[in-house]
Amino acid sequence: MCIKKYGFIALLLSMVIILTAGCGSSGRNKSAEPAAPNYPTQPITVIAPAGPGSGWDLTARSVTQILTEKKLVSVAMPVENRAGGGGAVALSHVVENKKGAEDTLIVYSPPLLLINLNGQTKFSYKDLTPIAKLFSDYQFIGVKKDSKFKTLDDVMNALKADPKSVKIGGASSPGSMDHLSFMMAAAQKGVNVKEVPYLSFQGGGELIAGLLGGSIDVVSTSVGDILGQLEAGNVRGLAVTSPERLKDQRLKDILTLKEQGIDATFEVWRGIFGPPQMPDYAKNYIADAIAKMVETDEWRATLTKYNWQNTYLPGDDFVKFLDEQNQLLEGILKNLGLIK
């Protein structure tokens, strides 16, 4: 009687297992490659410091997909999501538990610098092994299509007259990218930025609902989040933070900050890092694979699809870039009085 019952459970379980096994194991590739005799032998885990669907996650999945599909890396590259603390949780995990590891990589962007600068974590990019900058996105400042503000100057003048009169909204917290990129521009125009109300929304969708529903007057967010509304004509662009105009059809008429007399750019870069003291052979192997990847048509197609700008920067140049960015962000945060 009991055996029978147990048999039923086993049957059910094995059914489940068989059903699910069929779908999950695709995308794995166990063939060895002659280029590196001893490395890699184990799957290389790529950590996305936020949940599925986030920018980091998307980056990690796009990169691993091309690397394994084009056989640039000969082992499987599972993506592991370690969300928390704006990336701080994953950072302390990698620094503390993965020192010298050869089978772990992690994807980051400016918050890696910000969480260190504003004291959320004691670890910084200097604890990691920077491998390459992959691409960049830029920030966008805009208003609803029927807004009384026609230019960025209109917004800035209103803010100068009364800092509380215009509500700014972004999809990240105060002191993070959406907030900083706008306030950096406003500070240069002489606005008392500490008094400007800033509403932070959870994600681009809510932010846009807030803009269209009139909760905020000005939106500051990444270009990628706003494209759909821009195309539909619901939103008018006032500025982008790139050094030059963006090429996309929908964006080419939006002025850069520089064109409007504000000497600033804000780059939302994404890069790939190894753990602290990553062995050189592993670092070189990955760096080579990435260098080959950025030349593939698949990678170019991915960049176009998500409207990412190719700003690939390998090795030491990437480290130099990070040093500059760190100084720049520190300056902005100090200006805003967010750090001392």
Partner: peptide
């Protein structure tokens, strides 16, 4: 006793 944020408008 939580630390206070430096921006008045928040």
């Amino acid at each position: 006793n939580l630390p206070r944020f430096s921006m008045a408008t928040i």
